[in-house]
Amino acid sequence: MKGSPLISAKQLGQGYGSRIVFRALDLELQPGVTALLGPNGAGKTTLLQTLATVLPPRQGQLTIDGRVVVSEADARLARRRIGFLPQQFGYEPGMRVRDFVQYGAWIRGLPTREWAEASTIALEYVGLADEAASKMGRLSGGMRQRAAIAWAIVGKPDFVVLDEPTVGLDPQQRLRFRDIIVGLDDTTVLLSTHLIDDVDAICDRVVIMHEGRICFEGLTEDLKALDDPSIPGYTPLERAYMSLLPQEGSNR
């Protein structure tokens, strides 16, 4: 890929109290869909929150589109270009879908005059235009997840961060989700997931974390090339991913 990365992290460190989640982490992200893989406790959610400017870095430097995020004012400016969907997102059951998405526009700092049109565009994109007046609590799980994606992409942010967005979705809903993500042209998408088949289907690149460090960063096809038939798994990508993690009973 050509040009400067939209997101650049150098020697990034993060933690909670005395606990260190990761330190000295380097990462660059450019347009396309990048998967973030790793076992529970690897530090993925903390990294997503840091890159989305929800958590200020404890150490190192975070640069978004050439601008180093140093202050809260820098973070507020950066958030206008970032759509972040946490795994557990909150909503009022009685809130109408269009208001929920417009709330996302407000969170990101979009001008008030743009809320209505931006929300309409986002809902049309995820196929929920007909549900704009429906209440969030009356939506099915899959529809609610699509509303959440509309919340994250309202106003067409340059960087979209999704933390386990397909948890609980059935196969048909996951296929629809894939179509939505693939259609985000020229957007830098960072997708945290445990579902390797989703990665294989829609992701250009893969970042693998384990115990607070990055143990692989590269093209999805390059990860597949590490396929080891002796490792448990059902696909080349799954076996390659597992080969980079310590196996049970191993000292590696």
Rank of each mutant, 00 (worst) to 15 (best):
F216S: 04
I82H: 01
R205Q: 15
F89Y: 12
D130M: 14
L123G: 08
I7N: 01
A122Y: 09
R58Y: 06
I82M: 06
Y16P: 14
G104R: 07
A9H: 01
D163T: 10
E117R: 11
V154C: 09
D170K: 02
I121S: 07
R23Q: 15
L191S: 00
V206N: 03
R213H: 11
G142K: 12
Y91W: 13
D228Y: 03
Q145A: 05
G60R: 00
A105K: 01
W115M: 00
V101F: 14
L175M: 12
S140C: 09
H194F: 02
D222M: 10
E92F: 14
R205V: 00
M143P: 01
S134Y: 07
E248P: 04
I64T: 03
A150K: 00
P246E: 06
R144C: 01
F159Q: 00
F177T: 05
G83C: 08
Q30A: 09
R79K: 12
V97M: 09
L184S: 05
A118N: 08
D26N: 12
G90K: 03
P39E: 08
T120W: 02
T220F: 00
R138T: 15
A42S: 14
A78P: 07
T112Y: 04
D99F: 01
M136T: 01
L244I: 15
Q87K: 08
M242K: 12
L36A: 09
